[in-house]
Design a protein around this nucleic acid. Structure first.
Ligand SMILES: [Mg+2]
Length: 545
DNA sequence: AACGTCACG
DNA sequence: ACGTACGTGACGTTA
């Protein structure tokens, strides 16, 4: 419709066409079927049209049917489900340097390509819809994933404001320190080299300075220089490992956050607009990209400072609401274990309780160090961790680690039962499911190689837990979004970070919005244990978290 | 495009 | 078809 170049035949033109189509596109009674409807909605949104009646997204249907697939594009789906070879975009527009803008593609070809897209999507709906029904995934597909599209769309369009001068100044400060460290590293190394090159760095550390090789990299068996290796090397009488650790921290934060985010912020509004990907993570989680706003630093001191650059608009505050230990609570629910469930019902400190259980001591005898051990085990168990990793993680010997784990399974019998059941079911069916029937296939669960099979078993243990947490927060998001709109709030949902939701709240809604949010996050579904949400309000994301 | 590295839950 | 705890995305280097 936007074809305008001279030589094209006379046609209705984009603006007039959109004017004519607008009532149909915005009519929710007219069902829309297509591939990647959130993207289509953004395109229409740029022309002032609010696509309504989103009925069936083929990309998302494919993801619900098999979230482990790496591809859900229309060409793949056509081939896979319809045994049909669709014209590719490259075939009509070309690729590389010679690639044309779609509005310059021959009109006949462009029309045919566009119609094929629509036709294939509609035909896919039949096949995918049948599969969804067969797998008992219609609830999850329509009421969770499809319903989530307009929520994510609003979040992406709203964006979050950053303080650009704050980031730029911080970047300058980092630059000065980096220059300083760079010189010191060259001095210690006795040569200049590219510090950002793990290969060149390896040569300096392990050939020139003859430091011990502690680890090799997984793919190429090169000499590893990662943070664990450098931390161990820092105990030796060399200055260079510590300098490198500092250099790595600063350059990571500068390149990935300070400099990149400023470039991506809208020049007028100062807001960042991420993409929430609904068809990437094999467990049912969302992912975020361009920029990724789900991995903003928080752990280190300088990293934490970066959060202060995520701010609320004038007259607003940021509100962060995050689930407390949601995965452990889901794990307790699945295990059905009395001791585990009781701990959460009585609002006990779960790590203290675990320490007391596995060390057979009174809760008053649990020291901070014992609690730390129990915390690592609680975390490790939901990932299917073995004694090897636990001993390494805690710096204890292999035998002790083994004893802790067996004591854990002894005291929390339900946990052992869960582990055996979920692995057994996976072997039998070839997949595991979440509480809301989201499926993940694990073809390697019966593999004859122990290492590969163990990997699949850990996925079998973890996926129902991580996936159920993802299902729960998605449902909460849908309800919160619906109520904020229906009840006339001006508060907006901005971000989701797996167990956390971030909102921008006008000052006059600070007394009302949090109650709504908490109620929908905690109360959407009754598990055998209560769900708990921590909330905080601040002028920036650091203060709010 | 693959790799090593490192930011998050 | 590979190390050993799950799930992601981005950066800079190298081939
Ligand atoms: Mg939390």
């Amino acid at each position: 419709l936007a074809h305008t170049c001279p030589g094209f035949p006379e046609h209705v033109g984009r603006d007039r066409a959109l004017e004519l189509l607008k009532p149909v596109l915005e009519d929710k009674a007219v069902a829309k079927v297509g591939q990647n409807l959130k993207f289509q909605s953004i395109v229409f949104n740029n022309r002032g049209i609010e696509l309504a009646g989103l009925r069936f997204d083929t990309m998302i249907a494919s993801y619900v049917i098999n979230p482990g697939l790496k591809q859900h594009d229309l060409n793949f789906l056509a081939q896979h489900y319809l045994n049909l070879r669709k014209t590719t975009f490259e075939e009509v527009a070309g690729k590389g340097k010679g690639r044309k803008c779609f509005s310059d593609v021959d009109l006949e070809q462009a029309s045919k390509y566009s119609c094929e897209d629509a036709d294939v999507a509609l035909r896919l709906m039949e096949v995918l819809g049948k599969q969804l029904r067969e797998d008992e995934n219609e609830e999850l597909f329509y009421n969770v994933e499809m319903a989530l599209i307009p929520v994510l769309l609003d979040m992406e369009i709203t964006g979050i404001k950053i303080d650009k001068p704050f980031f730029s100044e911080m970047s300058e400060t980092f630059s000065r320190e980096l220059d300083q460290i760079e010189k010191e590293i060259y001095l210690e190394a006795g040569t200049e080299f590219n510090i950002n090159s793990p290969q060149q760095l390896g040569t300096v550390l392990f050939d020139k300075l003859q430091l011990p090789i502690l680890k090799r990299t997984s793919k190429t068996k090169a000499h590893s220089t990662d943070v664990k290796v450098l931390t161990k090397l820092a105990a030796l009488p060399f200055k260079i490992p510590k300098l490198l650790l500092r250099y790595r921290t600063l350059s990571k934060l500068k390149a990935t956050y300070l400099d990149s985010l400023v470039k991506l912020a809208d020049p007028v509004t100062g807001r960042l607009h991420t993409s929430f990907n609904q068809t990437v993570a094999a467990t049912g989680r969302l992912s975020s990209s361009n920029p990724n706003l789900q991995n903003i630093p928080i752990r280190g001191e300088e990293g934490r400072e970066i959060r202060r650059g995520f701010v609320a608009e004038d007259g607003c505050r940021l509100l962060s609401a995050d689930y407390s230990q949601v995965e452990l609570r889901i794990f307790a629910h699945y295990s059905g274990d009395d001791a585990f469930i009781e701990a959460f019902r009585e609002q006990e400190d779960i790590h203290t309780r675990t320490a007391a259980e596995i060390m057979s001591i009174g809760r008053e005898e649990v020291t901070p160090d014992r609690r730390r051990i129990a915390k690592a085990i609680n975390f490790g168990i939901i990932y299917g961790m073995g004694p090897h990793k636990l001993s390494e993680e805690l710096g204890i010997d292999h035998e002790t680690a083994k004893n802790y784990i067996s004591a854990y399974y002894e005291r929390y019998r339900g946990v052992a039962r869960y582990r055996d059941e979920v692995i057994g079911a996976a072997r039998e069916k070839g997949y595991v499911t979440t509480l809301f029937n989201r499926r993940r296939y694990l073809p390697d669960i019966n593999h004859k190689n122990r290492i590969i099979r163990s990997e699949a078993e850990r996925m079998a243990i973890n996926t129902p837990i991580q996936g159920t947490a993802a299902d729960l927060i998605k449902m909460a998001m849908i309800r919160i979004h619906g109520r904020l709109k229906k009840e006339g709030f001006r508060s907006r949902m901005l971000l989701q970070v797996h167990d956390e939701l971030v909102f921008e709240v006008p000052e006059d809604e600070i007394d009302t919005a949090p109650k709504l949010i908490r109620s929908e996050m905690e109360g959407g579904f009754q598990l055998k244990v209560p769900l708990k949400v921590d909330m905080k309000i601040g002028r920036n994301w650091d203060e709010a978290h």
